[in-house]
Amino acid sequence: MNKKLRRRTIIVVYIFLVFVLNSCSTPEERGRLPGDTATDASSTTSAHKVYSIEIKDMKFDPGEITVHKGDTVVWVNHDMVTHCVTEENTKAWTSSNIAAGNSWKMVVQSGADYFCAIHQVMKGKILVE
């Protein structure tokens, strides 16, 4: 491969990656918690981070995540079946159904053990530091 062609390939790959990463970082919003009124504009200007949890092959990946209060967690359902994300001990909050291919996000206020109420063997944990 000559130098010019190689350079062009790198540029094309770079543009492609930027495009893909951008499309992944703006997941469709499926629902909101009752008390969750923080706007996206304020959370992007603050130091709060956004974390993604993949729901794939009937598992939450990562199964355990450590965040700061005010950070956003996004669950993305890659499976062909509907899942949900529900606080396990008191059902304090729930995403309701997250259909195949959809996602749901929440601003974390406190740590929680959560599970999929549809498939009760699927469990996850949020730790707040």
Binding site: D57, M58, K59, M80, H119, M122
Partner: peptide
Amino acid sequence: QDVVPTLKAHLDH
């Protein structure tokens, strides 16, 4: 292959 984890979660459930 993609269906197998679903079946296994059903079995556990």
